[in-house]
């Protein structure tokens, strides 16, 4: 009787500890992510997108590399201006391990193809479909660029157009990590 009571107490308190710990733990964990919008210092949401050649790219494939994730559209003048700059930057830093992933904002294949041929871009142009990835990243205006360090955390988020010097400076910094 006495020991059975003791066992019951321990069982219940342990259950409370596990269940309660789980409940409180998930809130603590969730508050770090805070709604899933990527923040500086946080991790960018995963995506799996196809490029113009039909190859599938996953963000996690680029783990350990310095990545620039850029969201762009042909309808957005600052994006259009940036694309050739990224091409030059890509050529400059490619051998240092830089990866540029330019995610198009759910436009037609034809539109994107024409654009890419016009500017002769060599870095992967990924095709978002139905704005899913852009929504995941909580985009409110274009272009938006995420500089992701090799450890998988975000170094910088730039909303709006950038000058080429600025991009250069960011990438140089990114590659020091």
């Amino acid at each position: 009787m006495k020991s059975s009571r003791k066992i019951m107490q321990i069982v219940i308190l342990t259950a409370v500890l596990i269940i309660g710990g789980y409940a409180i733990g998930t809130t603590l964990f969730a508050s770090g992510e805070s709604g899933g919008v990527p923040k500086v210092g946080g991790t960018p949401p995963e995506f799996k997108l196809v490029d113009l050649q039909g190859n599938v790219h996953q963000l996690s494939d680029y783990k350990g590399k310095a990545i620039v994730v850029n969201f762009w559209g042909t309808f957005c003048p600052p994006c259009v201006k940036e694309m050739p700059e990224f091409e030059r930057q890509f050529a400059k830093w490619q051998n240092d391990g830089l990866e540029i992933l330019a995610i198009n904002l759910s436009e037609d294949t034809l539109t994107v193809n024409n654009f890419v041929h016009q500017f002769e871009l060599n870095y992967p142009i990924l095709r978002d479909v139905d704005r899913k990835t852009e929504r995941k990243y909580g985009l409110r205006s274009y272009p938006t660029t995420f500089f992701v360090k090799p450890d998988g955390t975000i170094m910088d988020i730039t909303v709006g157009g950038m000058t080429e010097e600025y991009i250069d400076e960011r990438i140089a910094k990114l590659l020091t990590y």
Partner: peptide, 25 residues
């Protein structure tokens, strides 16, 4: 701004739950 998902609010709920179990038993 996220009171009801905050650790302290959830802790209170967990404690109420615990109290419900133990008080009743």
């Amino acid at each position: 701004s996220h009171t009801y998902e905050s650790w302290w609010f959830i802790t209170l709920l967990v404690m109420i739950g615990t109290s419900l179990v133990i008080c009743s038993l």
